[in-house]
Computed example of a mutant assay.
Amino acid sequence: MARILVIEDDPVVARVTELVLQRAGHRPVLARDFLSAKSALAEPADAVILDINLPGGNGLELLRHLREELGSRTAVLILSALKQEDVIVRGLKLGANDFLTKPFSPQELILRLERCL
């Protein structure tokens, strides 16, 4: 059972993601804005599911913080409604392990997450 930090501001997407992860046997922990996510990153997680557009900041900045300042090798799966190639490429260059766009298939989310783990 992996501890998965889900950083998502949309309450519906956050709840669906939480349920999908629980059904797959994982322990999701939710953060809904930039500041609570940054604080939650101090606790060890097996993986992070990261939205880009967050209240109070940008998910890509959190990814940079995780990789550069914390030196973390934690698996990161970006889950975003943004589909522009430059955003996807930037996320991957900053160290994301994978990028999935919304709306998403629960099965695909679990498969991609487990591949990252």
Rank of each mutant, 00 (worst) to 15 (best):
A45F: 15
A45R: 14
D46R: 04
D46M: 05
A47I: 02
A47M: 09
V48T: 01
V48L: 03
V48D: 00
I49D: 03
I49M: 03
L50P: 00
D51N: 04
D51G: 00
D51K: 04
D51P: 07
D51L: 06
I52E: 00
I52N: 01
I52K: 07
I52G: 02
I52R: 04
I52F: 00
I52C: 02
N53E: 06
N53A: 11
N53G: 14
L54D: 01
L54G: 03
P55L: 03
P55E: 00
G56F: 13
G56E: 12
G56P: 09
G57I: 01
G57C: 08
G57Y: 06
G57D: 05
G57K: 15
N58K: 06
N58E: 05
L60S: 03
L60A: 01
L60V: 04
L60R: 12
E61Y: 15
E61W: 09
E61D: 11
L62W: 07
L62A: 03
L63N: 04
L63W: 05
L63T: 07
L63S: 04
R64V: 14
R64A: 04
H65K: 14
L66E: 02
L66R: 10
L66I: 02
L66V: 02
R67Y: 06
E68P: 13
E68T: 10
E68F: 11
E69P: 09
L70C: 01
G71Q: 12
G71C: 00
S72G: 13
S72D: 05
S72V: 03
S72P: 00
R73E: 14
R73M: 08
R73P: 13
R73S: 14
T74N: 05
T74E: 01
A75I: 09
A75R: 11
A75H: 11
V76A: 15
L77P: 06
L77E: 02
I78T: 01
L79C: 11
L79P: 12
L79Q: 06
S80F: 07
S80V: 05
S80Y: 10
A81L: 10
A81Q: 10
L82H: 12
L82K: 10
L82F: 09
